[in-house]
Design a binder for these strands. Structure first.
Lengths: 335, 335
DNA sequence: GTGAAAGCGCTAACAT
DNA sequence: ATGTTAGCGCTTTCAC
């Protein structure tokens, strides 16, 4: 006789309340047809026994658990941490819960999704993570929606996704840098095979080319601080030295600022312009005062949750693009 | 006929493999008594059908779900984000999964735990969060272990907990500041009713008093950046001005550095010593170079997971205290 | 080692 | 509106 078996069940409540077990179920089902008096009796009995519906049993029947699986590919980056926080809040407001997996680097996210499927999750959310085409098909076959956040999957394995307007944002950064009088521009790219890095790079480069300027010097920072240090060093050692650096995310931009300041003795803004992307909290700290393209986390999360809750979900092929805003701060003020 | 019902069940696999449904169960139960040949047949049939055991059904029977509930009280603080990340990794290594709730401020964590109980979670982990005594009793009654991480619950409602050696660490900070020649010391406390803030404050103050010095000037920062700005301003405006400030966590210390630098024009280290607690990633950034008391996240998480997995769990009353290490950096170098 | 049968706690027809 | 009856997909005796 295990300890756990002593928990009161709906049957116990039914006996105490003098009703059928089904009535207990109805009492705890919003909108079920049950008389107010009956429900009161049930609720009273339930309280007396400390009864709590077993959601596992309900989920077993319904085939859906009320749980949403979340896989974060970049759990150390504040933008996605903020997204996770917002997601948790929003989803618990609509009675859903999140099973979270963190997957550093380009780990095999498939294994985590495999586990999620065993729990019959209502949906899978990918934050800065990618799924194999095979696993994507699996999910579709099992009727589990998969939504990509912050990254759109490469064709043909299309997936609903919510992303920022990367190309437009990067173009605005380029435009702003030119307005400020910076001419020799450079770029630190993120992980090359992600849509976010590619789009940001393309948007930046294309604007320069359209303005008749040469393409920028380029280094790769893989969206990571350490790699961005090396990238910044390489860029700043070149002659002629770049006058401004656009980094594909804020983390790399902050790293670039530190290298420029402490290793090259440059004054940020006047001697070297630096801009990032996303607008993480640290970007606004006075020590950095980083110009960036701000992506609105809350609206993006709301959109994601909306798609997730939308039962009549069309197989939307095109990513939902959320508009951000250029945030000019001191790191690109030349004067 | 719902879409989800088309998923293959153990029964389907059994028919294809020409065995009983019970055999299928055994094939997927490590250590069950089943012939190798039988298992192979089952596994082959399962693969052919794309069968995946339904963990909800298993959990319903076993009374435990393999899921651990995690509530984070301070989801924007890097120390706890790192802990969550580590927790996720460690637990998924032992086949457990985490249902995560974020609870900003001093929100009602009880409601979240209530939900967790409905899913028959194996345990509840509280990161920088506190539970009401009533809810604590509920969990105990339902045989669900609750472990507190980074904060020890106030008596009498004792709970297993894993914390850093706050008092000793803070004393080492005080000792170090005195060695560096700082004399007029000040303190920015965290949330006053948390064990971590109280212990850090006490450890710091007691060391000073033991050395024959007056107790430090004091302000409260509630472990939050915004509040710490105000606290730092208030402290630095006093005359005589403090020579060094100890902050009960790193977030507040970084805030204090920015106020001192940008609002008071002070040179950190030489004109004002600043130290924090925890050793979050940002503390090591060159812009801050913050002296702090480093708490080892991984060992703390390992200990937590160890307690969690320990079936023969005694009602350990005393918190498990993990030792940290003083990390001297530039923010307390007077020369 | 393997199959038959009995549930785990609940929801969903179906009667009444 | 309420009780009865089947299961949801699995684990677990209990025979054999």
């Amino acid at each position: 006789m295990s300890k756990r078996s002593s928990l009161p069940s709906a049957h116990d409540v039914a006996r105490l309340a003098g009703v059928s077990q089904a009535a207990v179920s109805r009492a705890f089902t919003p909108g079920a047809s049950i008389a107010a008096g009956t429900r009161d009796k049930v609720v009273a009995a339930a309280k007396a026994l400390g009864y709590r519906p077993n959601l596992l049993a309900r989920s077993l029947i319904k085939g859906r658990s009320g749980i949403v699986g979340v896989v974060i590919g970049n759990p150390r980056y504040p933008f996605f941490q903020a997204a996770l926080d917002a997601l948790s809040t929003r989803l618990s407001q609509v009675g859903k819960h999140i099973l979270v997996y963190t997957a550093d680097e380009n780990a095999i996210v498939d294994a985590h999704v495999e586990e999620l499927l065993k729990y019959r999750v209502d949906a899978v959310l990918l934050l800065a993570a990618s799924l194999s085409p095979a696993m994507t098909d699996q999910c579709r076959a099992e009727d589990v929606p998969v939504i990509s956040f912050g990254r759109s999957p490469p064709p043909p394995a299309s997936l609903p996704s919510v992303v920022g307007d990367n190309a437009a944002g990067a173009a605005k950064i380029a435009e702003h840098m030119l307005e400020q009088g910076y001419r020799r521009l450079a770029l630190i790219a993120g992980t090359p095979d992600t849509s976010s890095s590619r789009e940001r790079e393309a948007g930046f480069v294309e604007h320069l080319v359209a303005e008749g300027l040469p393409p920028p010097e380029r280094a790769v920072g893989y969206f990571r601080r350490e790699a961005a240090f090396a990238a910044a060093r390489s860029l700043l050692a070149r002659r002629p030295r770049p006058e401004a650096i656009f980094c594909a995310n804020d983390d790399m931009a902050l790293a670039a600022i530190e290298v420029a300041r402490f290793e090259f003795g440059l004054e940020i803004g006047r001697e070297l312009g630096v801009a990032g992307f996303d607008d993480i909290e640290q970007a606004s700290w006075r020590s950095f005062d980083l110009t960036t393209y701000s992506l609105p986390v809350m609206p993006m999360v709301d959109l994601t949750v909306g798609i997730l809750l939308d039962e009549a979900q069309p197989a939307l092929a095109a990513p939902a693009v959320v508009q951000g805003a250029l945030l000019v701060r001191g790191s690109t003020q030349r004067s």
